[in-house]
């Protein structure tokens, strides 16, 4: 699929705006007092789910590229990865500011004492490692190892889902949907499955060709 340079730039800007939009919307809800009596928790939970959305979208780009060969998907991969990191940092800030009231001594003790927070922090560390090595300089410097380093993303997905599972209290429906989406994206990376993806594209092409 050939897309002009200008269209690709527009596409990147559109993705940027779309990724920013939920944060603006939640902030707006808080500003107009529509976020309930505990706005900090509202932001914390919504941004938490936002992290999973960003992560799942990032992980869907490789299978989508294989399926469509459109370079637009590859082009936004770093951006969405960095959005995942940004959401995760915002999530931690919400927790520190609004739940702990910026009591740093408590932040320290909570981080070591609560398994679900340890898991969440480990996921954040993984995201930070990928974030700081996402520039061209690091890619050159790391060479082949860059890919290995960025396989951390699979670990981050697992840790993120575990962190969320431990927060779920009485109904697994929402968690199951995220976990199923994550599992599907993992399955699409199993080599025999991944090899089928370009073939699906060719099948589609042949079908179109036959109709034409």
């Amino acid at each position: 699929m050939a897309t002009s340079r200008r269209m690709l730039t527009l596409w990147r800007v559109a993705v940027f705006i779309a990724a920013l939009a939920p944060l603006v919307y939640w902030g707006w809800q808080v500003a107009i007092n529509a976020a309930g009596p505990e706005p900090g928790r509202y932001l914390l939970l919504n941004i938490g789910q936002g992290i999973l959305w960003m992560l799942l979208l990032t992980l869907s780009l490789t299978p989508l590229t294989k399926l469509t060969r459109w370079k637009g998907f590859t082009l936004i991969r770093r951006q969405l990865g960095l959005w995942t990191l940004a959401y995760a940092v915002a999530h931690l800030l919400c927790y520190a500011l609004f739940i702990l009231g910026l009591d740093l001594s408590r932040l320290g003790s909570e981080i070591v004492r609560r398994p679900y927070i340890i898991v969440g922090m480990l996921a954040l560390v993984g995201l930070i490692v990928m974030g700081v090595t996402s520039n061209k300089w690091s890619m050159r410097k790391l060479g082949k190892r860059w890919k290995t380093v960025h396989k951390v993303v699979y670990l981050v997905l697992g840790l993120g889902l575990l962190h969320f599972l431990w927060v779920v209290r009485a109904d697994l429906e929402q968690w199951s949907l995220y976990a199923a989406a994550g599992a599907l994206l993992m399955v699409l990376r199993i080599p025999p499955v991944a090899r089928q993806l370009p073939k699906i594209r060719q099948l589609g092409k042949r079908h179109q060709g036959a109709r034409a």
Binding site: V30, P39, L97, E110, R114
Partner: peptide
């Protein structure tokens, strides 16, 4: 999963 030493009296603000 969390401390019970304190509580957030609602409504609160950011």
């Amino acid at each position: 999963r969390w401390s019970q030493a304190t509580e957030r009296r609602l409504p609160n603000s950011l």
